[in-house]
Amino acid sequence: MTNTNSTKTIAVYGATGHTGGYLLAELRRRELTPVLVGRDADRLRTAATAADLADADIRVASLDDHDALVAAFRDADVVISSLPAYVDHGEAVLSAAIDADAHYTDLSGEQLFVRRVFEDYSARAEAAGITLVPAVTDSNLPGDLLGHLTSRRVDGAAEITISHHSRSGGDGSRGSAETVLASVDWFREGGWHYADSGWQTGRPPVAELRYPTEQPRPASKFPLTPVLTIPRHSAVSSVTGLLPTEFHEGLKKLTADVVAALPATPDPASDLHYDLVVDAEGSGKSVRGVLSGLDSYRDSALMAVEAAVRLAENTTKPGALAAAEAFDATDFLDALAPHGITWRIEEL
C-alpha cells in the first residue's frame, strides 16, 4: 500500500446516503478523517458537515469516469463502497479501487454482484496485492462468521440455514428497495442455495423458521450472500438463505413507481432491532448462532468500518475473501459488543 504512516486513509464512495451517514459518524468516532468521493461536491460537503468532519477531503468522481475514480482513491489504504444496486453500479468502484492499489470492502447484499467479485476480480486483486471483502452487512457478515463457527460445532458436513428477522417487518430505505428492484426477479425466485457441492437455483423444501422468542413461521428461500461464501471455508452439505414468506409476498408488488414513492430513510418510529440466525445440523446435532443488533443500517456501517480498519493493517492475504477467510470470526464479532451488538452460540 502507498500509505506507510500509522494513520490510515479510508475513502468512502456513497457517503451522502442514509448508511453513509453512519459510516462517517463511526470514522469520526475512531478519529479517522476520511476521503469522501462522489459526483456532487456540495452533497459531500453537507454530509461531512453533518458528521462534524470539517477537515474531510472531498474529491469529485462519477461512476462512469474510471480514471477520476482511480485518482480519487490513489492514496487511500482502503475503499468502502456504499451504494444502492451494486449489481448495476458496484463494479465501477471495485475496479477503480484495485487499480488505485487500495483494499476494498462494501455493503452489498446481492448474490449476483458478490459472485462477480469472486469470479471476475479475485485473480486481478491477488496479482495487485489487494484484498477484497464484499458483502459486509448486518446479515451477510455475521451469517458468514457464524456459519464458520457453528459448522465446526457439528460432526461431518453441516446443513446450514441462515435467516434474518427484522422487527420492522422489512420496512427500510428507498436505497434498499432500489437494490432489490435492480435484481427483483432473482430475489423473487430465491437465488442460489448450496447443495450437492454446487450452487443451485430452485426452491429446496423448507417448512418454517424458528426465530428466537417467536412461534415458528412459514419461510421461503432468499438469496443471502453467505450461501456463496460459507462453502469457501467450511465443510457443508447445504447452505440456504431464508426469510419469512410474507416478505416474498411484498416483492410481488415492488415496482419502480412504488420504490420512487418510498422515503429516503426508514420511518423513525420503526423498531429496527433484528436477529441474524444461523442453524447448523450434522450427525444428529443442532447448533444455533444468533447475532442481535439495534439497527440494520447503523450496524452494517459499523461492521464495514471495522472491516476497513482491519484491512488497513495490511495483514490479510490478497484476493477476494469471505469475511471468515479475512478475519478471525470470534474476535470480529466480539469487537462489535461496545455498540450493543451481541452474539451467542447454543445447542438446540
Rank of each mutant, 00 (worst) to 15 (best):
F222Y: 13
I230Y: 06
V236S: 05
D77H: 10
T19E: 10
L24I: 00
D299H: 06
L242Q: 07
S176P: 04
D155L: 14
H233A: 10
H66S: 09
A329H: 02
N314Q: 09
Y121T: 03
P142V: 08
D334P: 08
L94F: 05
D171G: 15
L242F: 03
G319N: 01
Y211N: 13
R59Y: 03
D331A: 15
I130T: 14
A48V: 02
L254I: 07
A123L: 07
K252H: 14
R59T: 01
S238R: 14
S6W: 06
G282E: 00
H18E: 05
S173I: 07
A322R: 07
A51C: 07
D106G: 01
L272G: 01
A235W: 04
A324E: 00
D40W: 03
A97V: 11
K253Y: 13
H165A: 09
H18W: 02
A96H: 03
L336M: 10
E91R: 12
A235S: 15
N140R: 06
D55F: 03
F113R: 09
V117G: 05
R217W: 02
A335W: 01
T131K: 08
L112V: 14
E306K: 03
S270V: 08
G190F: 06
V60Y: 02
A68L: 05
L311W: 11
R167W: 13
V227A: 04
S283I: 04
L291W: 06
F187N: 04
A25Q: 12
R232H: 12
T105H: 04
R45E: 06
R344K: 15
Y104A: 10
Y194V: 04
G20V: 05
S95A: 15
V154P: 10
E119H: 10
L272E: 04
W186V: 11
D64F: 04
S62D: 14
A320L: 01
S234R: 08
P263V: 00
D120Y: 10
S234D: 11
L242N: 08
D275M: 03
G190S: 08
A324V: 00
S95N: 14
W199N: 10
D88R: 15
D88A: 13
A125D: 09
A304G: 10
R124C: 04
D144M: 07
V78R: 00
S81M: 03
F327G: 03
K8G: 04
I58K: 01
